[in-house]
Every structure is written in C-alpha cells, then in structure tokens.
C-alpha cells in the first residue's frame, strides 16, 4: 500500500507504471472523476470530487516522484488546464 505497489490486479501498482507514464495529461480528471471500467470487469476507480486543483497537484507530484518514479513535476497551471478538459 504505502510502497505504491497496489494490490495485485485489484489495485494496479503505481511503481514504474506504464499507465502513469502514458497518461500524465489525463491524471487530473482521473483523480477527480475516477475511472469507469468496461462493463464486464465491474471494478473501477472511485473519483474524489472534493479535491481542489492544488490538492490534485500535490497528489500527482507525489506519485510522479515517489517509490523511484521519475515523471516531471506538474505545476498548478498544468493541473488547471487538465481539469478544464474533463468530460
């Protein structure tokens, strides 16, 4: 949990994750609104609509740099731009 490795396939690992690398721009909307999975899988990631852009920024920058991850830091402008694209 605290080490970012998740829980098998129930909660995917965030350590050195391809998904994390390939979906940097989508992260703000993903954290705020969650993720619906295809109908047959039924598992999903819940969103957290109470989080502010600033809090989302902190979460993303933590995930991007924790556990040996090495993704670029996203500033608040990038987060706000990302949130404006949410469906």
């Amino acid at each position: 949990m605290e080490d970012g490795t998740g829980l098998e396939k129930v909660i995917p690992s965030l350590v050195n994750s391809d998904y994390l690398k390939l979906n940097q721009k989508e992260l703000p909307c993903l954290i705020r609104h969650g993720l619906e999975m295809p109908k047959d899988s039924m598992l999903f990631m819940p969103g957290n609509k109470k989080l502010t852009a600033f809090e989302i920024s902190n979460i993303i920058n933590y995930i991007n740099t924790a556990w040996g991850n090495d993704e670029p830091v996203q500033n608040i402008n990038a987060i706000n731009a990302g949130l404006n694209t949410c469906l």
Binding site: L7, E8, K9, L43
Partner: peptide
C-alpha cells in the same frame, strides 16, 4: 457472485 469471482481472479 460474479463480482466476487472477478475480485478473486484479480487477487490471483
């Protein structure tokens, strides 16, 4: 039952 099956599978 189906949801639990999926969960057990995902847990491996």
């Amino acid at each position: 039952q189906a949801q639990l099956k999926l969960y057990a599978n995902n847990l491996g």
